[in-house]
């Protein structure tokens, strides 16, 4: 890595402290050679209202998703995107965003599909930076295009498909949606009806841990021991587990994926980005309603297409 890590004590307790930087660290390193800062928000205009000086915008919907297929950009598309943002393969990328880094974590997860080595989150994201009265600007930085190689996307280590999840029973699943979505009272998230599903409930055996529990009031990640209490003691995850996290379209579960993979150090964590908009609309997949986790179906392989 070309740029050193943030030596903060809180981060040192995490499995991969190199994945986080503090607002203070970022402020001190703004403009450093080999560093690119990206803002990833839910609201497509939020960056334009003011952003961290030198930061570039990355839009999850129009830039990271394929325009036609429900998929992410391919290797050539990612290389073109990185090049346009002045990012080369060795660049240190720091991503931050709104809503406790919900969409920043999603962008970071897409970077992981392409194996970009040094990509970090700003702990606390946009809100913390603003709350601390740090500088904002509406100036758009000038970018010199960089060379970025076409790297084939490698989904398997971090992305689970429907068939993978059907074959996953017996291993832990984490449902990161709101309690009403988990129990099946709601078939869509409050305020997101266009991402609804035909059926409500959860994937059998999934533990309910709403994604936002990993974040403190100020949007920063909770300290290591609090995260251990939530995911190990409460949800029952154990070292060595093979974990799949899911939500509605895979963005909230990217946040949980980040926590499990980089803060708690689970080696095998995948995000099921089809999530409930796929599962809740798929034919003959098992579903459990209510607060109980439910038991693994005896014959999940009865479903075609898996």
């Amino acid at each position: 890595m070309t740029i050193g890590n943030d030596p903060q004590e809180k981060f040192a307790a995490y499995a991969h402290p190199e994945r986080l930087v503090s607002t203070q660290w970022l402020e001190q390193h703004l403009g450093a050679e080999g560093l690119v800062v990206l803002e990833s928000d839910e609201d497509v205009l939020l960056y334009e209202t003011g952003h961290i000086p030198g930061a570039l915008k990355i839009d999850w919907h129009s830039e990271l998703n394929d325009e036609v297929t429900r998929d992410y950009v391919d290797g050539a598309g990612f290389a073109a995107l990185m090049s346009a943002k002045g990012i080369s393969r060795g660049t240190t990328v720091v991503i931050y965003g709104d809503k406790s880094n919900w969409w920043a974590a999603y962008a970071l997860w897409v970077f992981a599909l392409f194996g970009h080595e040094d990509v970090r989150l700003l702990d606390g994201g946009r809100d913390k930076w603003i709350a601390e009265n740090r500088a904002l600007t509406t100036d758009r930085p000038a970018v010199s295009p960089a060379d970025y190689p076409v790297v084939e996307r490698n989904d398997a280590p971090v992305r689970a498909y429907l068939g993978d999840v059907l074959g996953h029973f017996g291993n832990p699943l984490i449902d990161v949606r709101s309690p009403d979505e988990y129990t099946g009272v709601r078939t869509h998230m409050p305020a997101y009806p266009e991402e609804g599903a035909m059926r409500g409930g959860h994937i059998p055996t999934a533990a309910s841990v709403p994604w936002g529990r990993a974040a403190a009031e100020d949007g920063t990640f909770r300290p290591r021991e609090e995260l251990d209490a939530i995911y190990r003691d409460e949800a029952g995850l154990r070292t060595g587990d093979d974990v799949v996290a899911y939500c509605r379209i895979g963005e909230r579960s990217s946040h949980t994926w980040f926590v499990l993979a980089y803060l708690l150090g689970f080696d095998k964590v995948r995000n099921y980005d089809g999530s409930w908009t796929e599962w809740g609309n798929a034919v003959r997949v098992p579903i459990v309603k209510g607060t109980e986790r439910g038991s693994a179906p005896a014959r999940a392989n009865a479903v075609s297409g898996s």
Binding site: D43, V44, L45, L46, E48, T49, D98
Partner: peptide, 9 residues
């Protein structure tokens, strides 16, 4: 809210 500029627009 101001943090929802698209909606406000």
């Amino acid at each position: 809210p101001p943090e929802a500029p698209t909606t406000r627009g």
